[in-house]
Design a protein around this nucleic acid. Structure first.
Lengths: 232, 232
DNA sequence: ACCTTATGTGACAGTTATGTGACGATGGCC
DNA sequence: GGCCATCGTCACATAACTGTCACATAAGGT
C-alpha cells in the first residue's frame, strides 16, 4: 500500500508544491490548513507521516503535536515540523513535543524528500515492533500476520487492510463510503455493497467455531469493530 | 442524514441563489429573514451550520451570534458571517463574537461552498462531541451506542435519531409535526400518529424494569425529554 | 357521570438493508 | 499458456425496520 502523508499547512501554494513533488515520489497526499482538522483526519484515516507547519491559524503546530502524542490509541505517528527561519530558536521545543525532525522554510523539495525517506525508514522498525491488539485479536503488521486467541487467521490483502483500519480506530462506526475512502483509497469508485462482501470475508476468517462476532453492523450507518457486538 | 444549513438573510434574491446552490450540494436548507426567528429555529430543529447576514432588520448578526453562543445547551453551532464590503473593518469583532468564518459580499458561490465544507469538517468534533449526556442516558455518536445506567440500549435508526434530537434539546416540547420535520426530514409526509409509535418504541427500549419514563407526553402539544417526567 | 378527543399499544404487511453464495474478470507466478 | 488467489459485482435469501391501522385506555370539558 502506498504510504500516506498528511500535510498540515495553510499556505495553499506550498501545499500544492509539496503535493506535486510527493505524489511523484509515490506517496498519497492528504492536506488541510487546520490543526483541528488534522487531528480529526488522523482519527479517521490511515496516515503514515505528518508534515506539520509550525504556524497555523488557530492551533499551533506544537499544540497539534502535543495533542497527537497524548492520544492513547495513536501509535507513534512520525511528524516532521516545517518552521520558518526566525523560529529556529524554538527547535528544541519542537523536538521536545515529539516531532521526529524539522525542516526550516524555505527548503528545497529534494531536502524534504530526503528527510521524509529517512524518518519513514527510521520509524518503520519502531512501527513494526508495535503490534496492533484489540480484545483477543492481534495483528503483526511487519509480518503481515493476524491471530485470534493465538489461532492464526489468514486474510486476503483487502481484508487485512480493512481489519487494520478497524483496529486503528476500534469502536468507531464507519460508513461504507468512509471505508472505501480509507481502505481502498480516496477517489476509487467501487460499489458500496462490495464493502459488505469483504466484511463477510473478514468475519468468516476471524470468527472461529465458538467465538463472538467482533464486527458490529450498524444498520443504515455502517460497521464497527466491537468486542461486545453481541449485546443484543 | 443530510446536513442542514440555516440561512439568516433578508435579501430574498440572495436567499434563493444560495438555496439553489446549496441544495445542489446536497444540503437541506432552512431560511428566515429574522434574527429572532433564527434563534428560535435553532432551538427547535437540528441545524448543522448557520449562514448569518451581518445586517439584519431588527437584530444584527452580531447580536444573533452573541446570543447563540450564550445559550448553555447549544453546542458550538458553526456560524459563517456574510458581510458587505464596507463592513470589513468589523471582521475582528465578528470572529470575536464567535463566528467560525466570514465571507464578504459579493462572493462566488464556489467560494462559499468551499468555506462551508471547511467549516463543517473542522467543526465536526465539536458538533458530534463524541457523546451526549442527559440524566442517566448517554449517547455515543461516533460509536452509535446508547446506554442508560450503563446498561446498553438498542435502538433502531429512527429511534436513534429521535432520541438524538431530544438529547440535543433536552426538556423542550416538540409537536409531532416538528419532530417529523427534524427527525424524518423536511417535506417528508407521513401520518403524525407514526410519531407516537416511535415514541413508544423509544420508551420501551429506554425504560428498564424499574426506571422512570424519561419522555413526557404533553397532551395536545407533543413530547419532550424530561428526567422528572413522572413528577407531573 | 358522560361524551369527546388525545394518546397508548399490539399486530401486520410492505419496504429497505444486510447476509450470503456464486460467477466471471483480473493479474501474478511458474 | 495454465494455475491460483483475490477481486468486484450480481441475484437471491434473510433479517430488520417502517408506517399504518384498529382498538384500548386515559384525559379534558361540560
Amino acid at each position: 500500500m502506498t504510504p500516506v502523508i498528511l500535510i498540515v499547512e495553510d499556505e495553499a501554494d506550498l501545499v500544492e508544491l509539496l503535493r506535486y513533488n510527493l505524489e511523484r515520489e509515490g506517496y498519497e497526499i492528504l492536506a488541510t490548513p487546520s490543526g483541528e482538522e488534522a487531528l480529526l483526519i488522523v482519527e479517521e484515516r490511515h496516515v503514515d507521516l505528518m508534515l506539520l507547519d509550525w504556524m497555523l491559524p488557530h492551533m499551533s503546530g506544537i499544540e497539534v503535536c502535543r495533542q497527537l502524542r497524548r492520544k492513547p490509541g495513536s501509535r507513534a505517528l512520525p511528524v516532521i515540523m516545517l518552521t520558518a527561519r526566525g523560529e529556529q530558536a524554538d527547535r528544541v521545543r519542537g523536538l521536545d513535543t515529539g516531532a521526529d525532525d524539522y525542516v526550516t522554510k524555505p527548503f528545497a523539495p529534494e531536502e524534504l524528500i530526503a528527510r521524509i525517506h529517512a524518518v519513514m525508514r527510521r520509524a518503520r522498525p519502531a512501527l513494526s515492533e508495535e503490534r496492533l491488539t484489540y480484545s483477543d485479536i492481534e495483528m503483526n503488521l511487519t509480518e503481515h500476520k493476524v491471530a485470534r486467541n493465538n489461532r492464526p487467521v489468514v486474510l486476503g490483502p483487502t481484508e487485512f487492510r480493512l481489519l487494520r483500519h478497524f483496529m486503528e480506530h476500534p469502536g468507531r462506526v464507519f460508513s461504507r463510503d468512509q471505508l472505501i475512502d480509507s481502505v481502498w483509497g480516496h477517489g476509487i469508485f467501487i460499489d458500496s455493497r462490495t464493502v459488505d462482501v469483504h466484511i463477510r470475508r473478514l468475519r468468516k476468517a476471524l470468527n472461529g467455531k465458538d467465538e463472538q462476532d467482533v464486527i458490529r453492523t450498524v444498520r443504515s450507518a455502517g460497521y464497527a469493530l466491537d468486542a461486545e457486538a453481541a449485546i443484543a
